[in-house]
Design a protein around this nucleic acid. Sequence first.
DNA 1: GTATATTGTAGGTGTGTACCTACATAACCA
DNA 2: TGGTTATGTAGGTACACACCTACAATATAC
Lengths: 197, 197
Amino acid sequence: MPRPSHADERRRQLLPIVASAFAELGYRRTTTAELAKRCKVRENILYRLWRDKKAMFVASIEFVYALSAETWRRLLAEGGDGKPPAERLLQYESEHHGESGLQRLVFAGLSETNDPAIHRALRTMYRRFHRFIGEQITAYRDDRRPPQPDVGLSAWAVIGLGTLTSIVQELNLLKSGERKRFMAEVGHLLIEGRPAA
Amino acid sequence: MPRPSHADERRRQLLPIVASAFAELGYRRTTTAELAKRCKVRENILYRLWRDKKAMFVASIEFVYALSAETWRRLLAEGGDGKPPAERLLQYESEHHGESGLQRLVFAGLSETNDPAIHRALRTMYRRFHRFIGEQITAYRDDRRPPQPDVGLSAWAVIGLGTLTSIVQELNLLKSGERKRFMAEVGHLLIEGRPAA
DNA sequence: GTATATTGTAGGTGTGTACCTACATAACCA
DNA sequence: TGGTTATGTAGGTACACACCTACAATATAC
């Protein structure tokens, strides 16, 4: 029998490179030639690992989200000297926002394609994202002080907060310190239902 | 003397068509050929009105924002049977969100280009947007009930709310009714600093 | 009417790009 | 060792796209 295929492993090796290219350049400007160059392989090797460019993009979305979620889970698991988990998440994101490139992939997927497969991938990603945030908010909340806004709505709003933060960062609309304050104060308001002290 | 130039008027005629094409297709997929077709002119006529494709895009951003702001101003001016202005704005947007295509232009500008002129145009647009929303929130607030969150932060958060709503709509993540409720409840929380009754 | 500049038409051109074909090489299993 | 198949190399193709050139037509001011 012939050689066994190491395609899965190869995909795992190259996906981070592919994803970061898409996040940096968007969908259209990320040419398959550029991808090949960054991966240090020939184009048609990429085409042996994924059916087409679209499939590379979809895989990138899934990869980047999985990576982010994993990072957050680790952060939350490492035990937080008393601080509430959702607040730690927000603080972490206010310092590392944009690093994963997730938002840039979303913008690219929304504006550069009308592809149903890509939209499906984004939808699935957002649903997972929303559920994850919702779980953190629920875990964080203190039942003793209602009224608090609906968890589902809060979770969407927190995601929107992240999206806007990423735009604000991209366009240099707020300095780093202001951005952190924005994230912390509005985040608190959305989660707790009242302004921070 | 020769014929006078009607270029300004021509630009005003064509800009709505150009802008809606960019909003619908993004930057890259909006080819100059497609623009010409929709405008029912030859390509090089567009190139006589704007230096290049980038200039057409920048003009579109300015046009669409000006149009939105004008719509909101008219809405607020027409006197609102007792309702507070910011709430009417939010309600209006929850019903008409996405119609202007402003958010799609932002996504396109952010993901499909790295052009400084385009980023400058987006930055200016956001600053105006932020100031406008801030003014509405200030006008709306009731001084008798502190504590309320910082107006500047609230205004950014409201913009973020709009952005997320547009993504949610694009991806069909919430039904229309849920989207409206989201906009109303979170908007209230952001502006007033406490959940709606 | 005529000179002059604005409009409109027709057709490139050079480049970029997704994806493919043909073939050489090397790893694996019997 | 030999047969089979994964992996790598080199080059190509068909098309799409931003932008340009050359020229005809037409509207205005005198």
